[in-house]
Amino acid sequence: MTGALGTVVEVFVSGMAKASLYAMMALGLTLIFGLLGVLNFAHGSLTMVGAYVAGLVMVTFATGSGLAAVGWFLVAALVAAVLVGGVGAVMEVGLIRKLYDRPPIYQILLTFGVTLVIDELARIVVLFYGLQPRADWRGALGTKPGFVDSNTALLGASVPNLELFELAFGVLTVVAVWAFLTQTRYGLVVRAGSEDDEMAAALGVDVRRVFTVVFALGAGLAGLAGALLMWDPAWGASVPLASETLLPAFVVVIVGGLGTFRGTVIAAGLVGMVDAVTTYFFNEGIITFSGISELTIFLILVGVLVVRPQGIAGLAEVGGH
């Protein structure tokens, strides 16, 4: 039986794993909004496409078990990121670019329309291949190696290896994106181009290309998040994954302070931990009420909007009504 310390460790690791997933869902969204000012309502759909692409690679090509399967997963995640990133690049060049000078409502309506198209296309494809669009894709879930499905003893707790895997994957992704933005010349170009596109262009930066790269990067991160969710039985590859991930992603981005990288990471940590704690108390502790974690996430959103409308790391607006 798990002791008090073990319970704390289990809840903490669960919270951090959830935080990783929320950060993965929200990173691309916050990059695209923070750097381009575009609220991409198609982000959840891109995550869903990433989950299906990664699942398809795993189901079709993955062989072996143990570390070999994890290696194949990394290949599948890379394929999902590149393909979905490519979709993002096409979206930016073909659709979004024409609307940069228009009010934000145009971009919201456009990306919402793209969501409807992608979701319907996905529904048609999965029905065509005999998969149930509303259930998680069991075949893809089944490609997970046995040791990822088992537990590890840690400080008196029994921690699921899947949570440790999600935590490691999320942390590596956050560090990689941070390093790209702050430690590379192209990251510098991206930050400059998003702050003042005219000045960056006058210094020789091809700003249009930078915007395409940023959108592709944000979409690619959605694809990567989808790959990670494809292996998690709480999520799984399914058409509704689009809306299931879009809402928490928006909550994390708003709580963090629209478009701030640091705020998004902190908010993901906060939402993940609160989710884990409330899930523990209401599922296993006080009473059984499984819908509480979703409710809690939105309560955090309401609380932050009331107390600190600009979010954790956002700048306060001056004036307004």
Binding site: A192, E195, E198, A202, L203, G204, V205
Partner: peptide, 29 residues
């Protein structure tokens, strides 16, 4: 950016430094 590549530079009105980049990053860029 193609005009800039040909050797025409700009020191604009109001400076327009990249406020969220460090001084060093502004110069490096």
């Amino acid at each position: 950016h193609e005009v800039a590549d040909r050797g025409v530079g700009w020191i604009p009105e109001d400076r327009r430094v990249f406020a969220h980049l460090t001084v060093e990053e502004n110069v490096r860029l």
